[in-house]
Simulated scan of single mutants.
Amino acid sequence: MSKSEKFIILPFKKVRGNLAPGEMRAASNAASAEKIARAMADRFVGVAAYSVQVDMESGDMSEPRVLWQSGEISDIAA
């Protein structure tokens, strides 16, 4: 089993009064993910940088771990 750590940034916006995820972005490392998330924070109601472990053979992912967050975010593991 070959696992790889991936870093993603997910902004959140309000749609009809509900919190909805925006377009996900990838980052090459944790520091870059946090830097991108911080830069996006002023444009969204919430933004978070996550780390996930991905099994490269099966595509299975671990529960996302929040590296940095700002504002309102929702649980993406649900």
Rank of each mutant, 00 (worst) to 15 (best):
R65E: 15
G22H: 14
K3Y: 07
L19I: 13
I73V: 15
E23L: 12
A30Y: 06
G46T: 08
S32M: 09
M1N: 12
I9S: 09
I73F: 13
A77I: 15
N18Q: 15
K35E: 05
E23F: 13
K35T: 11
L19S: 04
M61G: 06
E63S: 12
R25F: 11
G59T: 15
E72R: 13
A20Y: 14
D60T: 11
S28C: 10
R43C: 00
S74N: 12
S2G: 09
A20C: 03
P64C: 14
A78L: 14
V15N: 07
P64Q: 07
K3N: 12
G22T: 04
E5V: 02
P11H: 04
K35F: 09
G59K: 12
S32W: 00
K3M: 11
D42M: 01
E23Q: 13
S4C: 10
D55G: 04
E63R: 13
D42R: 07
E5A: 02
K13R: 12
K13T: 10
S58A: 10
V15R: 09
P64F: 06
L10Q: 15
E57C: 03
M24D: 14
K13F: 11
A49K: 02
D60C: 05
E72S: 12
A33E: 05
E34N: 03
G46M: 07
Q53Y: 06
D42F: 04
S74Y: 10
D75S: 13
S4R: 05
A41T: 03
V52G: 00
M61A: 15
L10D: 01
I36Q: 01
K3C: 10
D55W: 09
R43E: 09
E63D: 12
V66S: 11
L67M: 13
S28A: 08
K6C: 09
E57L: 13
S32A: 06
V47G: 02
G71H: 02
W68G: 07
E63T: 15
N29Y: 04
M1P: 00
D75R: 13
E5H: 10
K35D: 06
I36E: 02
E5C: 03
I76M: 13
F7V: 06
R16L: 10
K35N: 03
E72C: 04
D42I: 07
V54F: 14
S51P: 01
R65P: 06
L19Q: 11
G17T: 07
Y50G: 07
K14S: 08
P21R: 09
W68R: 04
V45S: 06
G59P: 12
A78T: 14
S70Y: 09
S62E: 08
E5P: 03
A41H: 00
V52F: 05
I36L: 01
D42G: 06
P11S: 12
F12R: 00
V66H: 09
A77H: 15
G59N: 10
G59M: 15
M1F: 05
